[in-house]
Amino acid sequence: MPVVVKLDDVLHARRMTLTELAAAVDISVVNLSILKTGKARAIRFSTLEAICTVLDCQPGDILRFEGGEA
């Protein structure tokens, strides 16, 4: 998959656990885990906005387009 989720890296940089983020953005740990492991098929703007607000980052810090694979 060319779009890679870098949530783990940002969480590590902020010294924050997934459980803490889940509580802060009001999204279940299960759903955030799906996002973190790259198993999600889509992400809502509202989810992205909440994560970026809590982690004080840009969407580009969480999602990165890698490679020219189809």
Partner: peptide
């Protein structure tokens, strides 16, 4: 059928 497809798509949305 289309509705079920859309629901399946939504199931993978976070």
């Amino acid at each position: 059928a289309r509705g079920a497809e859309m629901r399946d798509e939504l199931a993978g949305t976070v």
